[in-house]
Simulated scan of single mutants.
Amino acid sequence: MYVRKKRRMVAEINVVPYIDVMLVLLIIFMVTTPIITQGVKVELPKSKAEPIEQMKDGKTPIVATVDEAGLYYYQKDGVEKGPMNAEQLQAEVMDTLTIEPGTQVILKADGRVDYNAVIHLLNLMKQAGAPAVGLMTEDVESK
């Protein structure tokens, strides 16, 4: 007499399609990331200043930029907004400082920008509530 054996169900997940999808996503991110992380082209003034330390609580600083054309840009956590006018930049900084009080503000100005524009940007940041404002320069030995 023939006794039919019960087949056991296989409880394994086939992961090969998931690996294919992950490789495609990896390629997409590798191609699009350099396109997304483009910055504003400014020629920083050169200085022999010491690099600043990041804040102890891990907050990334706000970078306010003015380019040669007098346009303003805002950057925080790798996200850049702009070009914008002075009032829009001041509002962006105020909003960020309301959410994250005590965040460092760093000014990045093109070396060819009029000194008056840098002072105007400094005053805007102080009016926005920045506790301290730093100036970004390029190292003399980097070029």
Rank of each mutant, 00 (worst) to 15 (best):
Q38M: 09
F29W: 05
K5W: 04
V140E: 12
D67E: 06
V15S: 04
E138W: 01
N14F: 05
G70Q: 05
V79N: 10
T37Y: 12
K126Y: 12
Q54M: 11
Q75M: 15
T60G: 06
D67F: 04
G102T: 05
G58T: 10
G78E: 10
M136P: 02
K41D: 13
I35H: 07
V31K: 06
T37P: 00
E92R: 11
K81P: 02
I119R: 11
K56E: 15
K143G: 10
N123R: 10
Q127M: 13
H120F: 02
Y74A: 01
V15L: 13
D57V: 06
E12C: 05
D114H: 10
D57W: 09
I36G: 04
T98A: 10
L71K: 14
I62S: 00
A128H: 03
T32W: 07
G102Y: 02
Q38H: 06
V24N: 01
M94F: 05
V3I: 12
D139H: 05
G102M: 07
D67R: 09
D67H: 06
I28C: 10
V42D: 00
L97K: 08
E80G: 12
M30Y: 06
E141K: 12
T32P: 00
V66M: 02
A109Q: 03
A91C: 01
L26T: 15
V10A: 11
I106C: 01
A91G: 08
L124I: 04
P61F: 08
P45D: 06
Q127D: 12
M55L: 08
E12T: 14
Q38D: 09
E100N: 12
M22A: 15
M84N: 15
